[in-house]
Design a protein around this nucleic acid. Structure first.
Lengths: 254, 254
DNA sequence: GCGACAGGTTGACCTAAATCAACGTGTGCA
DNA sequence: TGCACACGTTGATTTAGGTCAACCTGTCGC
């Protein structure tokens, strides 16, 4: 797929409803959306979803496709429905800081003014729901609980950002990598997956740019953790954690 | 003043109103509050402020007084009305990351769940308005514009946090310090002060813990900037910026 | 008036992580 | 079939910033 032309399909053309009489209108794919409960849409009920779907477009992206570019007019916000997305900021000479990875259910577009304050790119195959930002803001007046949900998401993101500052400013390479693996483990657990088997769709370079390290240091630190029996590298970019409590201690230098 | 007993005065006992017939109720000190416009209270009008003042307590603190402690039950949120506050997180071995400095007009308590996710301490003399969190949350239903304001503040804080991640993860000591001075300059300008004269109420050690550096490196970097004619150190912990454009370039490695 | 102490600066030296470099390995395309 | 390229690993060397130590200044309490 071309970088400049991700596939789009208008939500209201994308009729996937089953013939059974669902409690939702069959024209609304949101009703059947598997990740709805963990995303912003989770606070809305059936008829409210109809309002949401009118302002939504579905999109898909492949590895390295740009999703938004820092500095562009911030006309859209997104809901990740599948795959992983990286958010990053660049310095003029090309140094890059990844400020976060988003996975299914995550909302993209929280921290922004008129213009995107960071860029976003697909890590592997990604599917999104795209919303016109002005129209979504209009819905906030109609559905106060949507606003409440956004506020609580922003609050969580802020707490996460503070943890990341502690990591970037004060942790060693090993503590950084352990913290990263631990956060993936916690996320897996909260989504009902096995917390000891992690999927790492991103490259070593991406991990480095997230943790404030180089590719080489990330690779060496993985090797050390493997050697010390803390983790095992499985095929397919997966990692097995042998002792989560130990990892927790190592993440805090305890 | 004792660390454990900051002075308190109930807002509704603190009658400061002038005898003139103000458009506000004279019993409400918020009406005359100089920093109201830049804080959350700025969105409320006179009678709405009356609801706010019922749930507010004024407090003052001195240097090094703790204001909140990470892990404590998050029962209160605060509005800084004077002085500076530092927010920080600690690792078990004492390493510290300051995640932000708050000044007058700033809101303290955005990113939190049941429990404070960071600590806060006074930098110099501080005055605050303290709100019962549950009661303030109750007001959000009554005044939707208060909620909108909080969301936009959270959004700004998030953007700031992302800038700080770029700084901590990818900038050199000199770029870090220049970025810090530049952000103080921008804040001064936005508040109507001279952007080339900065007040630094915090210690070199605090600056180091904010920028992910040691005291010594901060001190040496100040010396270098002075030597290169970028800044001048004035008495009273103030700093004069000689060329803001140059500082801007140095902050981004351009 | 002075002794203790906190904060700041500077110097000498050290080290964690960066840089530079070589080399695998897998995958997709000619 | 093979070769170009992206990605990962490992080794040798460098370096930015940390650590350790000395010293200076101002100030606060006695």
């Amino acid at each position: 797929m071309s970088r400049s032309n991700p596939s789009e399909s208008q939500g209201d053309l994308d009729i996937l409803g089953s013939p059974r009489a669902l409690p939702y209108s069959v024209e609304n794919p949101c009703a059947a959306c598997e990740i709805r409960e963990m995303s912003i849409c989770g606070v809305l009920d059936c008829e409210e979803l109809d309002a949401l779907i009118k302002i939504l477009t579905r999109q898909t992206f492949e590895t390295h496709d740009p999703i938004i570019d820092e500095g562009e007019s911030a006309d859209f916000v997104f809901n990740v429905t599948g795959g992983a997305v990286k958010l990053f900021k660049l310095l003029p000479d090309g140094r890059r800081q990844i400020t976060g990875f988003l996975y299914e259910g995550d909302f993209l577009g929280m921290a922004m003014n008129d213009v995107y304050s960071y860029s976003a790119e697909a890590v592997g195959d990604v599917s999104l729901c795209r919303f016109n930002r002005r129209k979504l803001e209009g819905l906030l007046d109609t559905f106060p609980k949507l606003e409440r949900r956004l506020l609580s998401m922003a609050s969580n993101e802020l707490a996460q950002a503070q943890d990341q500052m502690l990591l970037l400013g004060r942790k060693t390479a090993q503590e950084k990598l352990c913290s990263f693996l631990l956060s993936l483990s916690r996320r897996a657990e909260s989504r009902g997956y096995d917390p000891s088997i992690l999927h790492l769709p991103m490259s070593r370079n991406d991990i480095g740019d997230f943790l404030g390290l180089t590719t080489e240091t990330v690779s060496r630190t993985f090797t050390n953790l493997k050697r010390d029996g803390v983790i095992r590298l499985l095929e397919g970019g997966r990692v097995q954690i042998n002792d989560i409590d130990q990892l927790q201690d190592m993440a805090e230098g305890a």
